[in-house]
Design a protein around this nucleic acid. Sequence first.
DNA 1: CATCCACCGGAAATAGGGGGGC
DNA 2: GCCCCCCTATTTCCGGTGGATG
Length: 412
Amino acid sequence: MAGTRGVSDPLEDVFSKALLRRIFRKRWVLLPDYVPDTLPHREKELRRLAEVLAPALRGEKPGNAFLYGLTGTGKTAVARHVLLRLESRAREIGVAVKGIYVNVRQRETPYRVVAAIAEGIGLRVPFTGLSVGEVYERVMKKVSRLGGVYIIVLDEIDFLSKRSGGQDLLYRLTRANQDLGGRAWISLVGITNSLSFVESLEPRVRSSLGEVELVFQPYTAPQLRDILEERAREAFNPGVLSEGVVPLCAALAAREHGDARRALDLLRVAGEIAERRGDPMVTEEHVYAARVEIERDRVGEVVRGLPLHAKLVLLAIIRLQESRGGRSVSTGEVYEEYKRLAAELGLEHVTLRRVSGILSELDMLGIVRSRVVSRGRYGKTREAVVDADINAVLEALGDDPTIARLVYGDES
DNA sequence: CATCCACCGGAAATAGGGGGGC
DNA sequence: GCCCCCCTATTTCCGGTGGATG
């Protein structure tokens, strides 16, 4: 219990600071792309995926697999963990097995995905200029020259088939083994959190990719606690976590469909806040502060990355909502206000169709909530409400020099 | 019960900026 | 240099559509 009364006991405060000095021991253990040595409550899934891929150790073609489940249910961690273990075992026995992990969300287009695969096998390709087919050919040529077994993990694979040409690439990859003529093997592991994606797949792609399907259930709060405790032991210095912190992170994340990544983020950011403030321990208050900070950062990042006219549309919604006491606004209303703002800046305005598209993009980004409603005789439209901290949004909008004037009025 | 509003949202095409291979 | 490719934001075109209204 030493250290818990640091605030009221000045000597203990000095002592514990001297002893601990810092909050973190290995902060990176809590970062989203860290692959832990053990994955509590995912033993079955680990085993199943390993069974599917194990033939690679004999130099045979491993099966394809499809993993799905909500975000933060361990799909990515399981895939990466199995890949690492498989590769190291293969190295021990001198078999050529290569795992290639690609996050499709970060490499949205077919070209970038196939370029990432190329990079994964040590093939340098230009970031643009070639056709998808050309890069694909080069990859296949190199793979068949090198031989061996390649396991390609396509994480968030749904982002691939959305864009045109994505289905094509998937189809080609599922039958890549025919292009290799037995000189090498490729197996695919697809990961997604979208069930509608699974249904939208071409049957031939689906049956190939879904040879084995693993479903990941959300973690429960106690399971999340196990996960956090294990990581926390590594990540933090002993004694810096006050008692309620891990349960609180677990509870908050459990509320959001058992999202382990969310729980780890909360824990890490809470620690960062404590360290930044020079506090000797991480408390529940830091966790609540983390929740706010994570959201602010997310909003800021998303808004800053928006195209100019999307920013204007967003500003238009905020303006309208302010003058309407928070009521939701229709696409037509937004369009009129947006045109006024654009005119004020002397900019051409985009079409209504585009504004409608921007509205649904803002919805998917979680900045605005909009739903399509029918107002009967008065038409069908989308009704939008800003669904993020308005101040965080305005701050991010104000960072854009082109529209800062609109956000801050006419100062300076 | 048919009408008709006010958009919805898919598809294809364009613009225009950045790069190949040979 | 010529011809082809990629990428994002946007335009053009256009066939829907839920439900209050007359």
